[in-house]
Amino acid sequence: MNACFYCGVDVGSSYSKAVLLDASGGFAAGAIRRTGLDFARVAMELHQDLLVAVPDARDNVARTVATGYGRDNVAFATSRITEVSCQAAACWHLFHQALTAIDVGGQDTKIIVLGETGRRTDFRMNRRCASGTGAFLEEMAARLDTTPDGLEALAGRGRDAVPLSSFCTVFAKGELLSLIRAGRPVEDIALGVYDAVVRRVVEMASLQSGTIVLTGGAARPGGVLVGRFEAALGRQVLVPDRPQLTVALGAALLAMREGEGVP
């Protein structure tokens, strides 16, 4: 076998992602699918997606690291590593500096602190609660009768964010109703929803100084979430080119490191 590709598969709670790297660590392909209920199946489908994009990789994937919520269901993985370590590996690879990485995921939000040498010195996860996660945005979008993309479009037109005081997702939904009843512009309410996520994340760790990297499906470059983080922190936030693929990229990098001791 002429093994010259490395694969990372991130089976997340809402979306699953996969990345293929070539022998020199270059990005060869990426794929994203909704996770659905069958973790094993979505992993296989993502694998197929990568092979369709890069036919040369067929029979030439040296190692696959599985990560994410459904990492144990990826039968073809050569090893399994948590998304925290994958995220750290990817952020170090992409930015190569001491940084704090924030991943706003579907079910949870993680904050990872990397030191000068790329070594992880701390990480935090949100408590047993959806506030500050992608699930919060999804729930709020549904309450405003729109999709997550629709919520972002609404918030993009907001001017004066309406502050939400509730921590709890269920209470926040009730609060949205009161705000709508009070006649507050829905665009400003949508912006307030993003600020609620930012506030919750900012409480999880000290983000007063240093480089901040934002990843995850909701962290579109130039998107509302990034803008609200920058407004809250008073400085620029770095976002990778493919924020939703960061963890899968880290998994592929670790697959490469396991296989050959690089990069």
Partner: peptide, 28 residues
């Protein structure tokens, strides 16, 4: 984040992820 006796306050997946990630950090 969990509890001594009330498993309604325990999220298996979250606890597992925290511990596994911490062990990986220690190994690193």
């Amino acid at each position: 984040h969990s509890d001594l006796n009330d498993l309604r306050l325990h999220a298996d997946e979250g606890v597992r992820l925290a511990l596994e990630a911490f062990v990986e950090q220690c190994l690193e």
